[in-house]
């Protein structure tokens, strides 16, 4: 996470060392969150590939062996369920992007606060806020 280069040292500002600790913790939290989601994504995609291969094999078997046709409806129902869960997982995994933006914004505010307490001029533009308060999918608008 970027931090503003500042002449203000944590030791010289009242509470500055605490602010520096919070900034470091936020940076670590952001890195851990990113690493965790990266691992989840890799596993999720591997599972999806495996399930897709299984589906394809079962479809081929049903074509070659008509006696399996009774299973076709059940397979289709399972396919729909899996697609719904995949969709929900894709939506849910996007939370890391939004929380990272919020963490960066908090870190920038802390950095600015430390500079202002120390009498320095803030040197970094504030990132824009994230307005989402829940994980429901957003709107799509075509102009």
């Amino acid at each position: 996470m970027e931090t503003c280069a500042s002449p203000v040292n944590g030791q010289n500002v009242p509470g500055g060392s605490h602010l520096e600790e919070v900034e470091r913790d936020l940076a670590q939290m952001n890195a851990l969150l990113e690493a965790a989601i990266e691992k989840l994504l890799v596993s999720f995609m591997a599972i999806h590939r495996g399930v897709a291969s299984q589906e394809a094999m079962l479809r081929d078997s049903a074509v070659e062996h008509p006696e399996f046709s009774a299973c076709t409806a059940r397979m289709e129902s399972l396919r729909v369920d899996i697609a719904r869960h995949v969709s929900q997982a894709v939506s849910g995994l996007q939370f890391q992007d939004m929380t990272s933006q919020l963490i960066r914004r908090m870190a920038t505010h802390l950095s600015t606060l430390r500079e202002e307490i120390g009498g320095a001029e803030p040197c970094k533009p504030q990132p824009r806020a994230v307005s989402q308060h829940h994980m429901e999918c957003g709107d799509i608008e075509l102009f």
């Binding site: 995949v86 996007q94 957003g138 799509i140 102009f143």
Partner: peptide, 15 residues
Amino acid sequence: GATGWIVKPFDPARL
């Protein structure tokens, strides 16, 4: 010149 606007988090089917 944007053609449209999609708000995150996106829904895969709608995207």
